[in-house]
């Protein structure tokens, strides 16, 4: 039984490490900030979850597992928020490769707002801006 758990733990740890490595490669290789945030907010999250599962399977004590659950919960809730804030700032400061975009509906919306058309997203009423 312990051997089975250890093997499962090893698989999870290796899988998690591989995904985290892929995320790191993505952060280095992707062409602009927004694409890099994809690498940071997806393979990295699953990689961390797999590492946590692996550690939990190996340690098997209640105290450690509750801590691991907390790490997982906060990772899942905070990663998208951080990615959104960085992504939003990157878009607004034009840190993206526009030549790679097939469609840019937000840009069209913002341009329409500047030319006196319907208000762009930044002009929405009662918006809790961060």
């Amino acid at each position: 039984m312990t051997t089975v758990l250890d093997v499962l733990a090893a698989i999870c740890l290796l899988g998690g490490a591989a995904l985290s490595l892929a995320a790191a490669v993505g952060v280095v290789r992707f062409p602009d900030v927004l694409s890099r945030m994809h690498a940071a907010s997806k393979p990295q999250v699953l990689g961390l979850l797999l590492v946590l599962i692996g550690v939990g399977l190996r340690l098997r004590t209640q105290f450690d597992i509750t801590t691991l659950v907390l790490v997982a919960v906060f990772q899942l809730t905070t990663a998208p928020v951080a990615a959104h804030m960085v992504g939003r700032a990157a878009y607004r400061t034009r840190r993206l490769r526009r030549d790679l975009l097939i469609v840019d509906e937000l840009g069209e919306r913002l341009d329409a707002g500047r030319e006196g058309g319907p208000p762009g997203p930044s002009d929405g009423p009662g918006r809790p801006d961060g």
């Binding site: 995904l19 892929a22 992707f30 994809h38 997806k42 393979p43 490769r97 975009l101 097939i102 509906e105």
Partner: peptide, 17 residues
């Protein structure tokens, strides 16, 4: 996304919708 990180062509299109 992990496999995209290893592809050769990093000039592939993206989109904002």
């Amino acid at each position: 996304v992990a496999s995209l990180a290893f592809r050769r062509d990093q000039e592939a299109p993206t989109a904002v919708i």
